[in-house]
Design a protein around this nucleic acid. Structure first.
Lengths: 328, 328
DNA sequence: TTGTACGCGTTATCAA
DNA sequence: TTGATAACGCGTACAA
């Protein structure tokens, strides 16, 4: 492989002149610069990224931190995050390094921090009591989160989950619906917590009392979902608001098994639209977020941070409410 | 950040001694080595990966090349690839760099090659006339493919798609099934080509003629699938073999719309089991491949290549035939 | 405007 | 067994 010295020698100039011609930094004569640039083009010289990284203490890599997920309902979100981030990164001459973390195991992240192979990181999942955030702060790693965190001085990009859920709930309440059951799980995840807050907020705004007996907040298995479902059907709920598509998916199938019709017997809405919802005979009312924009924005903001620019502490993105037959 | 020289100075030894203590390479006294190792442990020194990369011409990174996919049927496969590769990489002290390519656009790959940020690559998708393979060969990049390629001297890890499809077809033929319709799309993808070959092979082995009029090989849109479906129903096919889950998914929904019952009116089988198949009222007969093993093996083999070890030209992994009610 | 010399942090070669 | 020194390839003050 050809080095900058080879080019310099072949052109009868010094290596630093070649370096300047490439980077555009520092003064350099127009003639020589053009000559060097042309020669580089022809000879196929390309700077060694690793050597650049060492000299400039900048890798042009960022890390995308993913949680370990396996359910069909969760996969598309992170898939879209990866693809959207990769696209923005590519456009900015960055590469992305993907790291998977499991639960509260911080070791993969610690290793990544020690290795210093990246200039910044994107957390694609956030928890109320997040163990990754303090680690990154301590080590002064530039990072952004996709999703909210309680910590105010963390740069976060989020959809307005609370607002969206409040509006959706409000719409449901404004219909002739009497009893909305809420089916949620894993309240440590910020997204879920915010959605539930929005749900409560809508009740407050309408001056209605929450019906605690048909609110389920810790459903983390199919068995629990089914139990909750049986109960709320018993209690004559006339609508089910599902916190995410995993729950929604289960509910739709269980209702089909039980011969309960949507929306004739009970209405259904989900707080997240993923493609999995396209697979039902009945279209589901849901909240739709632009994940590409979410992740792409997160990436752009991170690059600004790395460049030392001023960035907003929190970027809140919009949502859409998709009304379909499931709540007709 | 502390460097190896800092450690050396603080310990009153030379940098090279410290380096030897860490790497284990070269001779070093037991006493000094232990002393250095202990001190490193306490003081929290950690070698700079970028500097190591430069000195050793080894990045300890590999790239995972992904095609741009968006359908719910395709996403889980690549998701599992990423996660499985990341796990094996992590265990071998490697990091993975994810790059997305679109169609036959080789620029992302060219950029990656020029940058030399990785020691090797994994192609997660293969085509009959692949434009990435020759590029990597020319540039002498160590790489493996997940999926087959015609080029014999490419190291490839694949499931026995042809064999699996042949066996599945054989099973179907051995039942009282008379007319199997074949629904396929995008024959440039090696996996699809091999499945079709398996399908044909099964007919040959049974001494039966292919029924060309109910074989569809270029279905790349919902409209085309629906047209094919109408035709084959007209022609009294009694079973449909779907080349992948995207097609299977469409077929299942279209049949439901048309009030055609599975398996009473027509039987269905798919050449790929993904979680999307779990979402139907009727379970689908299908081929099941262990994607984690597939991708994990690909990664291990690549590491062996990078280490200069001898590796098998082609690794063929097994499959399972899952017989369900859809072909009862 | 250009060239020289040194630093980035590590490994490897060669003496001692 | 250990230490000095030279790579690895590039960027950049500083000098010319």
């Amino acid at each position: 492989m050809k080095t900058i010295h080879d080019v310099a020698k072949e052109l009868g100039v010094s290596a630093s002149t070649v370096s300047r011609a490439i980077s555009g930094k520092g003064r350099i004569g127009k003639t020589t610069r053009d000559r060097i640039l042309r020669y580089i083009e022809e000879s196929g010289y390309y700077p060694n990224a690793v050597a650049q990284s060492l000299a400039q203490a900048k890798t042009n890599n960022i890390a995308v931190i993913l949680p370990k997920v396996h359910t069909l309902a969760d996969i598309p979100f992170f898939h879209t995050c990866i693809y959207a981030i990769e696209e923005v990164a590519q456009a900015n001459d960055y590469d992305i390094l993907v790291v998977v973390t499991q639960g509260r195991d911080t070791r993969p992240l610690e290793r990544l921090i020690l290795n210093r192979k990246v200039d910044g990181m994107i957390l694609t999942s956030t928890f109320e009591n997040d163990c990754f955030v303090p680690l990154l702060k301590e080590n002064q790693i530039p990072f952004v989160t996709i999703g909210a965190v309680p910590d105010e001085d963390v740069v976060q990009i989020d959809n307005d989950n609370a607002g969206a859920c409040a509006e959706l709930t409000g719409v449901l309440l404004s219909k002739k619906i009497k009893h909305i059951a809420y089916l949620g799980g894993n309240m440590e995840q910020m997204v879920n917590k915010n959605r539930y807050q929005g749900f409560c907020e809508a009740y407050r705004q309408c001056g209605r009392e929450l019906e605690e007996d048909i609110i389920y907040k810790v459903l983390d298995s199919k068995v629990m979902i089914e139990k909750a479902l049986d109960e709320l059907l018993e209690k004559k709920a006339d609508c089910i608001l599902c916190q995410d598509d995993f729950i929604c998916n289960e509910v739709v199938h269980m209702l089909a098994d039980k011969q309960v019709r949507i929306p004739e017997d009970i209405k259904i809405a989900s707080c997240h639209y993923s493609r999995i919802l396209e697979n039902y005979p009945v279209m589901i009312t849901s909240l739709k977020f632009d994940i590409e924009e979410l992740a792409g924005t997160a990436c752009s903001v991170l690059f600004d941070m790395i460049d030392g620019k001023e960035v907003p502490g929190k970027t809140v993105l919009d949502y859409e409410i998709i009304l379909k037959e499931s709540t007709k």
